[in-house]
Design a binder for these strands. Sequence first.
RNA 1: GCCCUUAUAGCUCAAUGGAUAGAGCGCGAGUUUCCGGAACUCGAAAUAGAGGUUCGAGUCCUCUUAAGGGCACCA
Length: 550
Amino acid sequence: MIREEIREIIQEAVRRVQQEEKWPGFKIPEIQIEHPENAGFGDYSTNISMILAGLIKKNPMEIAKLLIKYLDLGVLLPIRRRTPKSSPKSKFKKIEIARPGFINFTLSKDYLQKQIKEILKQGDKFGQLKIGKNKKVQVEFISANPTGPLTVGNARGGPFGDVLANVLKMAGFRVEKAYYVNDYGMQILTLGHSVLKDKEAKYKGAYIDELSKRIKEKDPEKAGQKAAKIILKEMIQKTTVRLGIKFDEWFSEQTLYDSGQVEKALITLKKKNLIYEKEGALWFKSSKFGDEKDRVVVKANDFKTYLAGDIAHHLYKFEKKKFDKVINIWGADHYGDMKRLKGAMESFGHKDKLKIIFLQFVSLLEKGEGIKMSKRAGVYVTMDELLDKVGIDAVRFFFLQKSPDTHLNFDLSLAKEQSEKNPVYYVQYAHARICSILRKIPNQKSQIPNKFQIPNSKFKNLTNHFELNLIRQLIRFPEIIEDIIKDYQVQRLPYYALDLAAAFHKFYKDCRVLSEDKLLTQARLALVKATQIVLKNTLEIMGIRAPSKM
RNA sequence: GCCCUUAUAGCUCAAUGGAUAGAGCGCGAGUUUCCGGAACUCGAAAUAGAGGUUCGAGUCCUCUUAAGGGCACCA
């Protein structure tokens, strides 16, 4: 990754300047490399001089000049390959300083050409990173109670979690996707009452009526458990499959109780002196870990609370399944639970391994008016309805575009109307167009040629502005993966896909691929094939189809 | 009352503290000898308000206004 290489040479330059020029000792800050918005400033730029200026009280322009003097472009290559022939300087057309102290890097055409071959060589592995170092990560998402169908609200985490897990996999982590099934507790009893249609019934809807007919049990708890099983199997699991999500584990809360894991966790906490009795209940000292107050784990009636199960659940994740990291994707309504759970994990020494990402709520809009979604009141739009109307690709793209912090305004009729103009088709169209071109290559058997002939040394150089811009987009893909690993902002992917598709469409408009000029045709076909690879990898990681025709 | 999110173009959303704030839809004006016009080109249009920190603020801090969520022996 060229961005990483630039980061390294800058870091090395700072280190050397620090030594040679006897700058005061300071810890070298993280080197930030970014893409300038204005293309005139080059492909990559760093603000390190301004950062250093603050630390050592010198003029940032002076610092930048000094850094450039010490830039050792040689570190771009492993030492044994540093031959005069393959001058690493050739990677850059120019390296310049711009006020107030930016150092701007412009890639050479030669370097850009070479990236086409590199992408063709790597194929569907292009974008894979090693930063995960094979560490075990679990991503738990959706985990909606098995008391009704998945709504557009509680399934929002579906595309997000699924794609985050895919990205982690791409970055070299070993990843598991999990759904925690809350099949224990009050809501199951309430579900039972609802199915029996007695005084304590709360859930409503056609599916409840249906369950009432099917379930013969008269005991509310048993009726509830049976109903939950049916809902999970026939509604929730089917919807997740329709959404294109494959969970590796459906983890039942009930099993934590059956196997005694909850009991065991409580005993351990008691030994750590973190549990005490008050007013007939058992309390966990979560206030020791920053919570506002202590929380009940065993109620006066001897039933365990959700927290008790959750502690056992996470001990299972960390101690039995040995995850190095667990990422939970929760709805914003569970914000209050974070501190107590994190506190409990801290007491077991797993504090920093648990990451919780909150997704803001989806509000329903109808004719511009907001309505509260409520499963109990029967006011909601199910994910199935949306999938029926819009289809998986548009649904996934739509949700993926949104940052988790966005309070999503959702209007079903608008979603339907807009689905035909959905940006996902813009991206898919680019892919289909490419495949159409590739089909026209003589002696091409398969629709999408997998064994594309890598151009030999006669490879004609591409110099057109649109060609080079397309390559610039292509090589960003691994950067996107790296960025998402850092901040979990998955929406970078759909926006990248749009940028890439746009770069291709512009190239297509301007550059005739199949022409009389054989060398040029060959070179452009290579670029087109490379684009197809990257587009496909991007769509695949988002769980969106890359059609060869549409 | 306290805590967490959010407020960007008419609408739905982007923008690791960087240089001229981007898309899509909608609106206005255009593009066909040729590989797929589901495309391309051009235009109008936005950082809720007030202070502050910084060489530099949509982004960080404080206050105000507005929206959503939380503050259970529910999950």
